[in-house]
Structures are given as structure tokens and as C-alpha cells.
Nucleic acid binder design. Structure first.
Lengths: 339, 339
DNA sequence: ATGAAAGCGCTAACAC
DNA sequence: GTGTTAGCGCTTTCAT
């Protein structure tokens, strides 16, 4: 392995000068710089990142922990985060938590290992009871739900308002019996509970009765469970003319399940999702959805984290208390709601 | 920051003993171990991975460089790789190459930085001309196309055979004028060229004429371009009753484009894709596809890499020459081809 | 503009 | 079963 010393010897300078060149420090004579660069090239030198990390205490990398990378939503989120991080000169390493509390705690511990300068944790499993576990001494930003008023910065979706708008949209389009396919509600600030609240609010506002038979809870927010829920609804005998799906992934399954049940969208039933994943625009019928401003949320999360990382550099300065950011959204009306 | 020294002092042992405990070495008295563990807990000690990496020269992490994480195929591939790597005690860090030659070269350089013990590179941009650039002194496995007979292990899809089977399937289902939506062909061993070859072979085998007007090349393998290609085909006046799409992502776009053109699938036109992404089963109509054995390919790629990493540990032993593995596939017939 | 000294936190190799 | 020594490759600090 070629070290900075080897390069220094070959270029006839000290290791420090080589270091200066590598790190683009200004005070190096042009001629010297070129001599060093030539030596680097000839010897095939590469910095040893581990050594640099040890010395500087920084890695230039942030961790992004998401439930599962193979769900479209998280893949697209990851892409946004990577783009935002690049703007701060940060790289992103992706972790999977398996949508479990244990996985999320493991991701927190990893970060503590100083592998990353900070962590963006997309929570699904952690709840209010875990607030204390977030009191770690390294930068963390929570992206998602289930922890409010925690000790760390938090970027959340406009869950209640978005769900209300989605449901109201169905009602506007003429639906009178709107079903809901959502995940397990823990009665806390999890995604399903919040979107459920929005759904209820919209019904109330329109003076429509709430019918528990029209709520189809599923265990995991997957296409498979969405399809099964739709078939269950269709087979239950309960009449419905609209479905609000807690996520687009679930909605894709619901569209399939409705087709399996011989129901036509949007003629018999109108459907709307949440997340506005890229696939939605290409489905037949194309999927109406709530579009949280993903880029803004990703940018805010990375921004918060970058600030916290910078804070740690300065001694003493504690920086602002835990911040909360709730994104904005827009409604995208497509064929599945008759657009 | 709490170091191993602090723990040693608190537990009344030497740093080495703490190290032994952390690394689960067997020769530590039970009582000592517990004393150390208690100290670790009380002080909140966490290993400094950078220091360990520097010392051992290993990181326990492999890199996975894919074109874009937000395409379903790569998200699902990443999930398979992560699962396979976990079986070898390896973690995975995901890089994006942006589907460009430069991005792929950058990923190679990063790995060289010793951030990772090895790299799985999903190539799209690198070509035969870049063979020499792969002659790096750290473990690399190529997953994908465009480099055969390179200096490194290579795991490839059954591109030609799969494409032939897909096209033959359309013909079996009664199609006589099969269109092809593929990417840019560079006349080399890129995905589009190989699958094009398979398409041609199937036409020849069935005694069907090749009509260049039925080939719709697109610049990027996205849903957007797929939809545009389908509309172009439909508007061209050229008759066709089947479409083989070079990937499922493209096929999703094609299904949309056909719907936009007033064509019904599978009645007017039958459609088949390649990759068998999870979404395909839930589309309406569900998408027929070629299913490469993703898990086997991921497992093989990780296995190759793990062996190469182990080799580097032993001095001298060179290990086998570059290996080549071409996966198997099966055809999944769904509604889009009339199943 | 360049360099010397020191040490980041850990573990391999070897004692005992 | 436990401890000593040494040093991985780099950069911070301070000098010149």
C-alpha cells in the first residue's frame, strides 16, 4: 500500500506538503503541487480514509436508515436525500431497519460508532416511549412519525392535513361512502393513526357518517396486503364508492384487488393514495395522490443534520433546541379519481 | 469521548483485555469479562470504528454501486444483496453512479480508498475499452453487462436466452408482428444489444420477418421514455400485436403509452418485460416478465466477493482467475400476454 | 510556503 | 488468561 510518506519521498517534500496538496490547501507553490501530483499519479496513491477519519474525527458520510430500500417510496426518498447531501459535501450510506423497532435502535447504535457524522432515521417502529433512547450525543434527525417533542430535530409529513385533503377530494368527486385502507394504528402519532384522523375530519366536515365497516386495516403497508384488503372490502357486502389508501404502495395493491373483484376504477370506485410515487403517474388508471414536497423535506432534514454536525465542531456552542418541520403538500388529481 | 483506555482503567484491567472482550475472544475469565462489560455500560463506551479500521485494514463493509436507487429494479437488487451480505457478516453501503461511465469509475476509486473491503459494481456505462481500469488491487465483482473477459469476477443475467424466451412467448400467444422497445445499442455487450439479439433469434426461429419499423429505441430505460415509445409506435402506422420491453420499468411506461393510444392489452397488443419487478404482479393488466433468479445472482456476487476478500487476508495465495456466472431465468406469464 | 513532532484509538504479535 | 510494545496513515499545531 502506498502511503503519504512514499509520495513525499518520491516528490522530495514532507508528508505535510503532500497532505496540503491532497486537501487543496492554498499555500502551496504551483511547481511543488505539480511535482506532488505527478508522484501521486505515478505511485497510484489513494488516501486511506480510515486514517483520515481517525485523525479528524469526521467521516464526511451521513447514515440514512429506512425501513426497506425496495419499496418505491423509500428508494425515491433515498435519491432525494443523496442529492441534498451532495449539496453539503456529504456522502450517504443507506441502512435497512426492516421496519422494526430493533432495527431502528441498531441503526442508532451504529451511528454512535462514529461510522457516520450523523444519522437520518426514518422511523416506523420507535414510539414515544423510546424518547430517551434518542438522547445520544451525536447528530440525529428523525424523518417520519411516532416521535413528537423528542430531544432531536424532526421532519414530518403533513399527515393529517394531507389525509383530510385526499378524503375531501374523493367526496368532492361525488363519493359518499369512502373506505380507508390503513396500517396498524397504535393510537399514537404513527402514520396510520394520523392519516386516520385526517380521514375522520374530512368525513365530519362533509357531514358524512363514519362507518367502521369501511375501514380495512392491514398489517404491513405492502401491495400484497393492499390487494387483499380491497378484495375483503369488496366481498364484505359493505357498499363503498371511494377508497383512501394510506400510501401509494398500498394503493397499487388496492387497484389490483378492486380489479380482481370486478370493480372498475374510477367508474365504480374512486381511489387516492399518499406519497405520489413515480409509478403512480404511469398506472392505468393513473393514481391520484397527495404529493408531499419530498425534495423540500429531504433538503430540510439534511440541512438540520448538517447544522448539527457543524455545531459539534465548535466548542461549547449548543445550537438551537430540537426543531420541528412539517412539510407542505399538494394534491395530484389523476384518472383514479376521475380526472 | 470514551476510549478503550478509560474502560480498562475503570475495570482495572489492560486495554488488551477490553479489546478481547469486545471482539468476543474466548480466553477471558468470566468474571473479568463481566467486570469489563459493566464498565463499558457505565461509561457508555462505543468502539471507534475508524481506529479499528485503520488498525485491521478491514472495514467489514462492501460497497454496492448501482445506477439509481429509485428505480424499482435496483432497489430490489439492493435488498437481495444486503440479505446475502448479512450471511457473510458484511454490511453494505450503497453508491449511486447515475448510470454513467464517470459515476462508475468514481465508485471504483472510492472503493480503492479502502472505505470498503470490496465492491459490487452494477455496470451500465463501462465498456470493453475500460477493461484495464478494472485492474485494481482490491476485490471487485461486476454485476451486469458490458464487460466480458475482464480481469474481475462477473455475474451476468441470461440476457440473450431470456429475451429469446420472452419474444418466443409472444409468438406462441399468437403475435405475428412483435415490436421491441429497447435502449441505446452500442453494438457491444450492453443489455440492450444482448436482448436485441435474443429478440432477433426468436423471430428467426419462428420464421417471422424482422421489421426495423417495429424497433423503438429509447435514450434512457425509464417509464417516461417507455410511454413515449409506445405512443410513437402506435402513431407510426406500423401494425404490431406484441411488444417486448427491454425492462419491466420500460414496460410499465409502455402499458401506459398503449392505453393513451387507445390500445387494449392484451386484446389488441400483448406485452412482456424483463426483470420481474415486484410491481408487475399488481399492475392491471399484470405484467408478464422474464424472472432472472435475483437471489441466486445476488448470492453468487456476494459469494465471489467474500472469497476474494478472504484471499487478500492470506499472503501469497492468488485464488482462481476471473470467474463468470450467468444466471438462470424463468418466464412468468401473466395477464399482459393473455394468461 | 514548507516541515517536525505528536498522537487520534485501536489491535497484532508476542511475552509471561 | 492477561499485559506490553509498537504502530496502522493521517493531520493538527506550531515553528521556520
Amino acid at each position: 500500500m502506498v502511503t503519504i510518506q512514499d509520495v513525499a519521498k518520491a516528490a522530495g517534500v514532507s508528508p505535510m506538503t503532500v497532505s496540503h496538496v491532497i486537501n487543496h490547501h492554498p499555500h502551496v507553490k504551483n511547481e511543488t503541487r505539480e511535482r506532488v501530483l505527478r508522484a501521486i499519479d505515478e505511485l497510484g496513491y489513494r488516501v486511506n480514509v480510515a486514517a483520515r477519519n481517525l485523525r479528524t474525527g469526521r467521516t464526511g458520510t451521513i447514515g440514512l436508515a429506512v425501513p426497506e430500500v425496495d419499496r418505491p417510496y423509500y428508494g425515491q426518498l433515498a435519491a432525494e436525500i443523496i442529492a441534498a447531501a451532495a449539496g453539503h459535501g456529504l456522502k450517504v450510506a443507506i441502512e435497512q431497519t426492516g421496519a422494526s423497532r430493533e432495527g431502528e435502535l441498531a441503526a442508532l447504535a451504529l451511528s454512535r460508532n462514529r461510522l457516520y457524522d450523523g444519522l437520518i432515521l426514518s422511523t416506523v417502529g420507535l414510539g414515544p416511549a423510546d424518547t430517551d433512547l434518542l438522547k445520544v450525543d451525536h447528530p440525529v434527525v428523525i424523518l417520519g412519525e411516532r416521535i413528537f417533542d423528542g430531544p432531536v430535530d424532526h421532519v414530518a409529513m403533513p399527515n393529517v392535513a394531507g389525509a383530510r385533503a385526499a378524503t375531501a377530494h374523493l367526496i368532492e368527486r361525488g363519493c359518499r361512502r369512502v373506505a380507508l385502507v390503513d396500517g396498524l394504528r397504535r393510537g399514537e402519532v404513527d402514520v396510520s393513526s394520523l392519516r386516520y384522523d385526517g380521514y375522520r375530519e374530512a368525513l365530519d366536515a362533509a357531514g358524512l357518517p363514519f362507518d367502521p365497516r369501511l375501514v380495512a386495516p392491514i398489517e404491513r403497508l405492502t401491495m400484497e396486503h393492499g390487494a387483499a384488503a380491497a378484495r375483503r372490502l369488496a366481498g364484505s357486502g359493505a357498499e363503498f364508492d371511494g377508497v383512501f389508501c394510506v400510501t401509494d404502495t398500498v394503493a397499487i395493491g388496492v387497484l389490483r384487488g378492486l380489479a380482481d373483484s370486478g370493480l372498475s376504477v374510477p367508474r365504480d370506485v374512486k381511489v387516492i393514495g399518499f406519497d405520489n410515487v413515480a409509478e403512480g403517474a404511469y398506472l392505468v388508471p393513473s393514481l391520484s395522490s397527495i404529493d408531499p414536497d419530498h425534495a423540500l423535506m429531504a433538503g430540510t432534514a439534511v440541512g438540520f443534520l448538517a447544522e448539527r454536525i457543524a455545531e459539534k465542531g465548535k466548542k461549547g456552542a449548543r445550537g438551537p433546541a430540537a426543531r420541528e418541520f412539517i412539510g407542505d403538500f399538494s394534491l395530484v388529481a389523476r384518472e383514479s379519481t376521475g380526472a
